[in-house]
Design a protein around this nucleic acid. Structure first.
Length: 266
DNA sequence: ATACCTGTTTCCCG
DNA sequence: CCGGGAAACAGGTA
């Protein structure tokens, strides 16, 4: 599920809980999402407080509570948020249940690659405030891209795009989408990208990020019909643009899908 | 049964 | 010290 737009949608699932008090907190006894945290401390801190706001930044989520308390959630590979009925019974992979009078806010994560963090203080904790500039902001400019290309001149573009220090929220399918639209081979090295291609690449990052937020981020469904997204998940699919056979291979340690007719190495 | 997977961290190498 | 890559984490699904 979770790349930036899916995270934004997940965050909205807890929106109805804002302005309401926490009656009880249930933490899964063994889930790895608590690897930074003491479960009883989480319960002690959050119980009785009021959820006051929520926000996302890339793949990170921040929930604000009364009394200067903060809860961070990262969905990992298989995490998701749900709003369930007040007396909902915990399922096997429910890592966290936050009970309120009219609903139960649930964080479910079968593979447990997600992560829960806590913070206390007037200002948001450092794990939130230290995040790199959001790709949705005006301050996210092409200098960030050119700086990353320069510093990592021997990295395949696919691997670079997944680097959260530069492109917070970029995930596997979004990176494939960006490279496909930019007509860049995913294994192309940072140093091999012309100035012209850099401009295209930057524009397509913005296009895909905004396009994903306006579709997936709003309704939780799929991105627009003509996106590579719909053809990238299994072998033997056809490029929506060129109608030639798409390739799927590991690049930068991740399954990568691209169109050999469109995305040539140079 | 076996391989695969929307993410990140840690370890190892040059 | 830095950059790059592989392995590890864990369980569901095809």
């Amino acid at each position: 599920m979770p790349e930036l737009a899916e995270v934004a949608y997940a965050c909205r699932q807890w929106r109805d809980g804002i302005g309401h008090k926490v009656k009880e907190v249930t933490a899964h006894p063994t889930s790895r999402v608590y690897r930074d945290l003491d479960r009883s401390q989480l319960q002690k801190k959050i119980t009785g407080l009021t959820l006051s706001a929520s926000d996302t930044h890339g793949k990170q989520m921040l929930f604000s509570f009364s009394n200067n308390n903060w809860l961070g959630i990262h969905l990992g590979m298989t995490g998701n948020l749900f709003s369930e009925p007040p007396h909902y019974k915990a399922q096997k992979h429910d890592a966290l249940l936050v009970r309120q009078t009219n609903r139960t806010l649930a964080f479910r994560d079968p593979r447990q690659f997600g992560r829960i963090r806590l913070g206390e203080g007037n200002d948001p904790p450092h794990w939130w405030s230290d995040l790199p500039i959001s790709m949705l902001r005006e301050e996210f400019n092409s200098d960030i891209l050119s700086g990353a290309l320069k510093r990592h001149s021997r990295r395949p573009l696919k691997a670079l795009l997944l680097d959260q220090r530069y492109f917070p929220g970029m995930g596997n399918w979004m990176a494939d989408e960006v490279l496909w639209r930019s007509k860049i081979h995913p294994a192309q090295l940072g140093s091999q990208i012309s100035k012209i291609k850099q401009v295209t690449l930057f524009e397509q990052i913005i296009f895909v990020v905004k396009g994903a937020m306006n579709s997936v981020g709003q309704h939780g469904g799929d991105p627009p019909e003509d996106w590579l997204f719909h053809s990238r998940w299994k072998n033997g699919q056809i490029c929506p643009q060129t109608k030639s056979l798409l390739i799927r291979e590991q690049i930068g340690g991740r399954t990568t899908c691209w169109c050999p007719a469109l995305q040539k190495k140079s």
